[in-house]
Design a protein around this nucleic acid. Structure first.
Lengths: 242, 242
DNA sequence: TGTACATCAGTGAACGCGCGTTCACTGATGTAC
DNA sequence: TGTACATCAGTGAACGCGCGTTCACTGATGTAC
């Protein structure tokens, strides 16, 4: 590798780091080419040797944020024994919240208001599924461990959506036969989790919940209970404990 | 009232309308004083006779958005017979979603990423509670109609938050003695509702749920069932039906 | 190893925009006597 | 009702910024013979 190629890689990394820092401290609106050039002691025009423009930089950061979140949650969840399903589930919830609090602007970049004038390209879709995948995995493990055949029916109006999700689940090597109600409970969990985190970051619990750590834990427990409750036979066999 | 005072009021209204239109079509970032001046065929400086600056305009729009949302939902909910609690509950969910879809930028202004450099002042707090209030009211009605004494316990870690919420509930003339678990179920409902709407607006259901109307209805039904389930005696008396 | 040529990083300047806010001033409207 | 004065809406210009992107050019690095 030539010195030039090395310098090139190094500078590109420095550029992305600078962009990341600006995003973290000022949000997506603070991501300005001229500002980054100043940060790097370089003329604005120089940046265009490394990146096609502001949009490409945004795309890189979007992917980065998804991957950072997924990686953080994956690592935390991997630390919990495989059989302790509820703890794994809880860990995902809690870790998503903690990552979001520690990376507010990155979180807003991916889950907040779309950046005006920026359309996320296709390459951001795959990295976006990290957290969902984990929830699906735990849910799938629960089904494998305790489910069998019968379960609550899912609404017909969502049949098409459910088969789309089933295809996605299969593509990721998980058990296909989990009942629709269980799949929906998983999607619902994801909805509530991101709702809670988004509202907390937006300061919308100002008049109500202040102990948000306890709140998210409560939500996680309740959603896990709801997940279990979709497995009809499980409910019949053992009631609502654990 | 003098002609001048009338003209003043009229222009102020025109200014706010123009701001609203810009917000609706371009989002909060499109709200620029100079642009509004152009929209109104007036010099930029003239606007400062009517408004102290961009921030005041934003505040007006934030309050406007909260009130428009609350009013829309209130009107829809008021059309449902008082005793049909589940339908009232469903109506709130569905109407919030519909308002959000029809007013994407207004929704993002209040529930999306905070506008950089803008801090919402205290006067925006009261109008923000419209939807929560409605959910609380239905929940309170449910308690009055069917609850009594005993219910699931709420976690101690949230006791303080619960008493803050109880005080707020009292201040709005609702029944005070609803159990903590029920109050939490109501907050959870609000969390899930805004989560679902936010994720839909952000395009995060692209690979999973497409029939979002059916999905929100499912969530609403499930959350109503969960709300009822927190009333222990109710559950014991009648099971999970209705 | 040395020379000739090709590649390419970074500069400096420009293009063509945009913004929020202030302020001296003009001319119309309103008020008091 | 008429005049003198006060109020105030809106102008036009300026202040002091900012932005993304392009492009001819310089000078250093790399490559082929």
């Amino acid at each position: 590798m030539t010195a030039r190629a090395e310098a090139r890689d190094a500078f590109r990394r420095r550029l992305i780091d600078a962009a990341y820092t600006r995003l973290a401290t000022e949000g997506a609106a603070g991501l300005r080419m001229r500002q980054l050039a100043r940060d790097l002691n370089v003329t604005p025009g120089a940046l265009y040797r490394y990146v096609s423009g502001r949009d490409e930089l945004l795309t890189i950061l979007v992917i980065d944020a998804y991957e950072s979140l997924a990686e953080t949650v994956r690592r935390a969840e991997a630390g919990v024994p495989r059989t302790e399903l509820e703890r794994r589930w809880l860990t995902v919830w809690v870790t998503v919240r903690e990552w979001a609090l520690a990376h507010r602007n990155e979180y807003q970049l991916i889950y907040g208001t779309p950046v005006p004038g920026y359309e996320a390209p296709a390459e951001t879709i795959a990295p976006a599924s990290g957290v969902t995948l984990l929830l699906a995995q735990i849910s799938s493990d629960l089904w494998t461990a305790r489910g069998n055949g019968a379960a609550d029916p899912a609404p017909v109006s969502l049949a098409e959506d459910l088969s789309r999700i089933a295809a996605w689940v299969v593509a990721h090597g998980m058990s296909v036969d989990a009942p629709g109600a269980m799949v929906l409970a998983t999607v619902e969990a994801w909805t509530t989790l991101l709702g809670a985190v988004g509202l907390e970051l937006g300061g919308h619990f100002r008049g109500s919940i202040h102990n948000n750590a306890a709140y998210i834990e409560l939500l996680a427990r309740r959603s896990y209970a709801a997940l279990r409750a979709t497995i009809l036979n499980d409910r019949v066999r053992e009631g609502a404990d654990v």
